[in-house]
Amino acid sequence: MDTFIQQIINGLTLGAVYAMVALGYTMVYGIIQLINFAHGEVVMIGAMVAFSVIGALLGLDSGLPPALIVLLGAAAAIPVCMAVAYAMERVAYRPLRGAPRLAPLITAIGVSIILQQLGMMIWSRNPLAFPQILENRIFHLGGATVSTVQLAIWLVAVSMMGALTLMIHRTRLGIAMRATSQNPQVAGLMGIDVNRVIAATFIIGAALAAIAGVMVGTYYGIAHYTMGSLLGLKAFCAAVLGGIGNLPGAMLGGLILGVVEALGAGYIGDFTGNWFGSNYQDVFAFIVLILVLVFRPSGLLGERVGDRT
């Protein structure tokens, strides 16, 4: 039972990260029906920038409290990721607006490769040890353990998702985004600068990705230039699971996927007499993706065609 609870805790942490990244996919899809495969790389860049800033601050011996250093790292990563996302949208996607859907999709894969190689050139091929400066206290819940980093991840993820929901439903920008997702032409006629709204969508998604990058870095203690690709793919599965284009769907999909992965990796060996090992952990995301596409193509909460964002 302790093991089961622990697996759920692990899964929820993983799921919170997936959910944060999945939001970026789903927002962009909701507004321009583009699957931005370069989104995972934005997460990587977020983690790498934070890594550099945290490393530099530690090198200065500034005596700042560790939590503040990590916050500063995230604060530096967010604008960089926003800039990357804006540039990506402006250079690679905007010229293809109105082109057949396959063109921007392939462009997205190209952008992803470019960003990955850039990451390799800037931060080297080595797996970078993300500075472990947060005191990782461990709490015991019965036989299971929860660490402060896990608590922080949940807290940040929940508050970010709350803030995003508020923004979409309460602010002018949110209203403009919803209008654009329903019908860009009409939204334009209503005086909404559609290009600006789309750019804003990319930028908000990138900010969430940056935070997710810092989370992953702190949680696993490692950052690497390839870290974004698999994470991005899984987050994409999470978005599809919840219903792509649907914000609460992305959150739910992320959490479910995290738990499915943790439980799957933890128990598949026992159930199959070790025929399938825990190395099939990464496969669960894609099995889930296939099942969803076969049995419920619009996802758990439905693809919101009318009100996508």
Partner: peptide, 14 residues
């Protein structure tokens, strides 16, 4: 795991 596994928590918990 695999050559790309970063999350070992499920296996370790088991």
């Amino acid at each position: 795991g695999t050559k790309d596994t970063r999350d070992w928590k499920a296996i370790l918990t088991k």
